[in-house]
Amino acid sequence: MEIERAHLAGGGAIFDGSAAPSRRNRMPMIRVEMYAGRSPEQKKALVKALTEAFVATAGSTPDSVQIVLQDIEKSDWATGGVLASDKA
Rank of each mutant, 00 (worst) to 15 (best):
residue 23 R to T: 15
residue 23 R to P: 11
residue 26 R to S: 04
residue 26 R to M: 05
residue 27 M to E: 15
residue 27 M to G: 15
residue 28 P to R: 09
residue 28 P to I: 07
residue 28 P to V: 11
residue 29 M to T: 12
residue 29 M to N: 11
residue 29 M to W: 13
residue 30 I to F: 05
residue 30 I to W: 02
residue 30 I to P: 00
residue 31 R to W: 08
residue 32 V to I: 03
residue 33 E to Y: 04
residue 33 E to M: 02
residue 34 M to G: 01
residue 34 M to C: 06
residue 35 Y to F: 14
residue 35 Y to G: 01
residue 35 Y to H: 01
residue 36 A to H: 07
residue 37 G to W: 01
residue 37 G to P: 04
residue 39 S to Q: 01
residue 39 S to R: 00
residue 40 P to I: 06
residue 41 E to N: 09
residue 41 E to I: 10
residue 42 Q to T: 03
residue 43 K to S: 05
residue 43 K to D: 02
residue 44 K to D: 08
residue 44 K to F: 00
residue 44 K to T: 10
residue 45 A to D: 09
residue 46 L to C: 03
residue 46 L to G: 04
residue 47 V to M: 13
residue 47 V to L: 10
residue 49 A to I: 13
residue 50 L to R: 07
residue 51 T to P: 04
residue 51 T to R: 10
residue 54 F to C: 15
residue 55 V to C: 08
residue 55 V to E: 12
residue 55 V to A: 12
residue 55 V to S: 10
residue 56 A to L: 12
residue 57 T to I: 07
residue 57 T to R: 04
residue 57 T to V: 12
residue 58 A to K: 14
residue 58 A to Y: 14
residue 59 G to M: 10
residue 59 G to L: 14
residue 59 G to W: 08
residue 60 S to Q: 10
residue 60 S to L: 04
residue 60 S to H: 08
residue 60 S to R: 12
residue 61 T to Y: 12
residue 61 T to H: 14
residue 61 T to S: 14
residue 62 P to W: 07
residue 63 D to Q: 15
residue 63 D to T: 15
residue 63 D to L: 15
residue 65 V to S: 09
residue 65 V to F: 11
residue 66 Q to C: 14
residue 67 I to P: 02
residue 68 V to E: 12
residue 69 L to T: 08
residue 69 L to V: 11
residue 71 D to K: 08
residue 71 D to R: 08
residue 71 D to S: 11
residue 73 E to P: 08
residue 73 E to F: 02
residue 74 K to V: 05
residue 74 K to C: 02
residue 77 W to E: 01
residue 77 W to D: 00
residue 77 W to R: 01
residue 79 T to Y: 00
residue 79 T to E: 02
residue 79 T to K: 00
residue 79 T to N: 01
residue 80 G to C: 02
residue 83 L to M: 15
residue 83 L to K: 05
residue 83 L to Q: 04
